[in-house]
């Protein structure tokens, strides 16, 4: 918002990723287009298996090599196509330009190294600094995330879950990256601790002026911290726009279903409105629009033809044949 410029930091074009499993091909991401401006925070929302994490791992090129393959597309970051980079060049980018925070802080830290050592290692990979300065910088990073510098020689098991996630954040930010990808950073935490960590991330984002991709299934977190939001279903973005626009004027039936599934805190509902069925089998996606078997508005064209994206207003993109709001659409 206040810090976003119009300059694109990240631009994903036509990205497709497949996994091979038991002779079957899983289309995890298909022809995904997405861009992120400098200073922008994007929420990436969808159910398990929608392709959120796969997209994030593609940006960092850390998809498991054997079963997965990027079959098409370009990922432009700061004017360079990351998919054409060599392994060595990618190593320079990871951690320095783009950092990632994973869901479970309990498993993403090394249990046999002190937190100080782990942060120093990260900085040392990208900056040649004398030992003393490395240690000083690590201590500063800990202070940044609200941990006393005296704890620099403690091991991860001596910290609580929320503190561990702070250490992970300190590590991710230690090289001042342009882009931070946070994959469900608060899902493993308690609500009051989640509130602490979100507050911290909000402040750091402002201070470091970085862009962020926040992967989550919690629409509440998106409302709290993001500028724009992309709703994913079965490997593609079905709706994209500013948080304000999408939350107050969503146009895709799946987005509607997501909002309907959350029990409201303001009103009493006897029953929740639910959509029938399950997310489709990714090895065998339905024809046409992958959401059509579950969609209450589906018409004959939805089963035959995959909908193209259209803009309902500048910057608000929907992939649907129908028009939930206007009723004009393609009918």
């Amino acid at each position: 918002m206040e810090h976003t410029s119009n300059e694109k930091l990240l631009d994903i074009r036509d990205l497709s990723v497949e996994y091979h499993s038991n002779g079957k091909i899983v289309k995890a991401v298909s022809n995904l287009n997405l861009s992120l401006k400098k200073g922008e925070t994007l929420g990436f929302v969808g159910e398990t298996g929608a392709g959120k994490t796969t997209t994030a791992l593609s940006i960092l090129r850390i998809l498991p090599e054997l079963p997965s393959r990027i079959t098409s597309g370009e990922i432009w970051f700061n004017g360079e196509n990351l998919l054409l980079k060599s392994k060595k060049e990618m190593q320079q980018i990871r951690g320095k330009e783009i950092s990632m925070i994973f869901q479970d802080p309990m498993t993403s830290l090394d249990p046999v190294a002190t937190v100080g050592k782990q942060i120093e290692e990260m900085i040392g990979l990208h900056e040649k600094l004398p030992k003393k300065e490395l240690r000083e910088k690590a201590a500063q990073m800990l202070e940044q995330v609200g941990i006393k510098r005296e704890r620099i020689d403690d091991y991860p098991h001596q910290f609580s879950g929320g503190m561990k996630q702070r250490v992970v954040i300190a590590m991710a930010l230690s090289c001042n990256p342009n882009l931070l990808i946070a994959d469900e950073p608060t899902t493993a935490l308690n609500v009051t601790i989640q509130a602490q960590v979100l507050e911290l991330m909000k402040n750091l984002k402002r201070q470091y002026q970085m862009s962020m991709i926040m992967i989550t299934h919690d629409l509440g977190i998106v409302a709290e911290i993001c500028d724009s939001v992309a709703i994913m279903y079965a490997g593609n973005i079905v709706e994209y726009g500013t948080v304000e626009r999408v939350y107050e004027n969503f146009c895709h039936p799946y987005t509607e279903a997501l909002f309907d599934s959350i029990p409201s805190l303001d009103e009493d509902q006897e029953e929740l409105k639910v959509i029938a069925g399950l997310t489709p089998d990714p090895t065998n996606l339905p024809s046409g629009c992958p959401f059509h078997p579950r969609c209450p508005y589906a018409g004959p064209e939805c089963a035959q033809q995959a909908p193209e994206v259209r803009e309902t207003e500048p910057g608000h993109i929907v992939r649907c044949h129908k028009d939930l709001k206007g009723g004009s659409g393609n009918e």
Partner: peptide, 21 residues
């Protein structure tokens, strides 16, 4: 106050608890 609410432009007071349980 720490529940994230899926609504935009919500004005509410947040009570951030310090420390851990």
């Amino acid at each position: 106050s720490s529940i994230p609410i899926p609504k935009v432009n919500l004005k509410r007071e947040r009570i951030i608890l310090e420390g851990d349980v």
